[in-house]
Amino acid sequence: MYFLKPGIKKYPEKRWHLPDRIFFSFGACHILAGVFLKKFSDKGFYALRILPKAGFYGNHIFVTDGIVAFDFHGYSLKNQLIAHFRKGWSARYPGWDAHIEVVDFPLLDTDSLNQRKMLGPNQYLFNPIKRAEQFLNRFDHEHLIAKVLKKAC
């Protein structure tokens, strides 16, 4: 897990120049998830959102097919990703807890995202959709999904 220095997200230049994994872990996870779902619309994936209880940080969106999950880490088992996320945030913030819900709004629509206090694609310094596409192109998706499923057995 990554934790940013305070204030970085307020500066578009600093945010944009973060390494990809950090960029997509802190404030652009919804963009990565939206681009993934668009690119792999035929693979049975959907988006889940981790919503921390009131007063806590730690909102996160990732995609899953119910078993395998994908986010800035790459591929993992869904339950392991959730456990890792819970462990990291609760270790940093005692009392941290969250619930998980299916995303029922468009992940690349600025108005829908702004209503939920997230930036839309046109509100970043440059094009985060293109950046997410380039990030996704680094992965051998079929091989990595098979590798994760092998762990599940």
Rank of each mutant, 00 (worst) to 15 (best):
P106L: 08
D71A: 03
H99A: 13
K53V: 11
R86P: 06
V63H: 00
K117D: 15
N127D: 15
D65Y: 08
F36H: 09
L37R: 12
N59V: 10
R138N: 03
R49G: 06
K10V: 10
G7E: 11
F26N: 10
D97E: 08
D65M: 07
K117N: 13
H143C: 03
S76N: 13
V148L: 02
D97R: 02
L77M: 10
G55Y: 04
D140T: 13
A33C: 03
C153S: 13
H30Y: 05
R86Q: 08
D97G: 14
P12W: 08
D140G: 02
K117Q: 11
T64G: 03
K39D: 06
E142R: 01
G74R: 09
E142N: 13
D71Q: 01
F72E: 10
V102R: 12
M1F: 14
V63G: 10
H17F: 15
K117V: 02
Q115F: 07
D20R: 00
D97L: 00
A98F: 14
H99D: 12
I129Y: 05
K130H: 11
K14L: 13
E13R: 15
V35Y: 13
F72V: 02
L113H: 09
P12A: 13
E133V: 05
L37C: 10
F56D: 05
F26C: 11
V63F: 03
K117P: 04
F126P: 00
A98I: 10
D140F: 05
M1P: 08
G66H: 09
A91I: 04
R49L: 01
D109P: 09
K9E: 14
L144M: 07
S112N: 14
L4A: 08
W96L: 02
A91H: 14
I129M: 13
K43M: 09
N59E: 14
M1S: 03
F126Q: 15
F105Q: 03
A83W: 12
K151L: 11
Y75W: 12
L119W: 03
D65W: 09
W89P: 02
A33L: 15
S25D: 11
A152G: 00
W96E: 07
D109S: 06
H99M: 06
Y46S: 14
L81I: 04
T64I: 06
F70T: 03
D20L: 10
F45L: 02
A83C: 09
G58L: 02
G34A: 04
L136E: 00
V148S: 00
K53H: 07
L81M: 07
A152N: 15
P106W: 05
S112Y: 06
F72N: 12
L4E: 13
G95E: 15
F24W: 09
G74D: 05
P52H: 06
R21I: 08
V148C: 02
Q80N: 08
F45D: 00
G27W: 07
K9H: 02
W89Q: 07
L149Y: 07
F24H: 00
L81V: 02
H84P: 00
N59S: 08
G55D: 05
A146N: 15
Y124C: 08
H30I: 14
I100A: 02
R116W: 05
F36V: 12
K53A: 07
H84T: 11
